[in-house]
Design a protein around this nucleic acid. Structure first.
Lengths: 217, 217
DNA sequence: GCCTTTTTCAACCAAAAGTTTAAACTAACC
DNA sequence: GGTTAGTTTAAACTTTTGGTTGAAAAAGGC
């Protein structure tokens, strides 16, 4: 009998290779647009191995969704703790979303396609993660309002504006390259979002939320 | 020989029926996810008729894209003229995007999926329309800055925030129904965007752009 | 050398999908 | 009423795809 540890390792290795390839292809072509053969080809693995290791296309996709969309909530939640003022928390929040998308470039396309499908393929844990993010944002804003530095605003809308801007910006790289003027001041080929873009979004969102001196509320 | 008029009419009729069905199915399932059979079935037409009238799946999809994404720029451009102040123009801009999405519910899913694909299927005219919208928004902001009522801001980012918020809100209706707390204060089942949502976005964007009394710039 | 797990190879199947062909139908026109 | 161009249909054809299988080979610890 094979050593269970190294057996586990080998199993884990190929499974990870397959997951990574699936993540690539699914994020490029969407669920219906990808073929299992293509995933196996890119993973450098036989199709039968893929079925042996993981299962059918649906199972594979579910794994990718969880992998790509699942981690966002946790990291955001933990990092917010370190910030002190509501302004800093909000900045951290925005910067976190931006960094998550740069670190995880598969997220924007998959998120866009899944939202186009009404999010019906999101597993329960992902939806709960989303709800938690909204709660966090809601608490940040509520605290700001309580302290008299923010005006009230609907958290889901703020979140959608932030995420929408980042996701669209990232996926629009080919468009910006194709048509001058679509990118504004950004240098062509820049598809990172945690730099200038995030700074700009921070500025805009904070201007929108910050209570101006003399404002009622 | 058939009367060319009624012939044209019949041809136009079935072609429109097919286009409408294609629009429905493509917006629900995306390009790769839809079958030509399903389109023909929903159009109440034989599959061969579809090929006779329009062509293959690609051609059909190109027609839908043009139909769904093509009109946005023109209507926006014309309506902006009527507004006077930069503030009013910006409000009109935002309200226009919102109304376009309510009037044309196929747009958000198709836009999201196409953006996920890097906009590579957008025909030239659609991309030019997008560029024109950015130009319009840029002029509104520039005028506001010149008159001392706005602070400078990157037009593409503003646009992406607006469109992102609206598109995500519209497609997230099933998610909001599934999970309480995702919708904030909005009543469940409300998926219109040109009402409260647009008002809220107007408020936020104007707060972000408006120069506060005493602000330099 | 034996045994278990893993991977490959090849083929297969059934279902589905895109496309085409030839025949049937429709309606104006002589 | 028959002709004819335009239109629609039924049915087939071709290719692709997802899924499965069975046997063989490789890998690697014992």
């Amino acid at each position: 009998m094979m050593d269970p540890v190294s057996a586990q390792n080998r199993r884990g290795d190929t499974a990870l290779k397959i997951l990574a390839a699936a993540r690539d292809v699914f994020s490029e072509r969407g669920f219906a647009g990808t073929t299992v053969d293509e995933i196996a080809r890119r993973a450098g693995v036989n199709k039968a191995t893929l079925y042996y290791q993981i299962g059918d296309k649906q199972t594979l996709y579910a794994g990718v969704i969880l992998d790509v969309m699942g981690s966002a909530a946790d990291t955001t939640a933990s990092e917010i703790q370190n910030a002190t003022s509501p302004e800093e928390k909000l900045r951290t929040y925005i910067r976190n979303v931006a960094e998550a998308m740069d670190r995880n470039p598969w997220m924007p396309p998959i998120m866009l396609r899944e939202m186009a499908a009404g999010g019906r393929n999101f597993p329960e844990t992902v939806v709960l993660g989303l709800a938690r993010i909204f709660t966090i944002l809601g608490e940040i804003i509520a605290e700001g309002v309580r302290r008299g530095v923010f005006v009230p605003a609907p958290p889901p809308l703020i979140h959608l504006m932030i995420v929408g801007a980042f996701a669209f910006f990232k996926t629009s790289a080919p468009l910006r390259e194709r048509q001058a003027g679509l990118g504004g001041d950004w240098p062509a080929g820049e598809d990172r979002v945690s730099g200038t873009v995030a700074t700009e979004v921070e500025r805009l969102v904070l201007r929108a939320l910050r209570k101006t001196p003399g404002e009622a509320g």
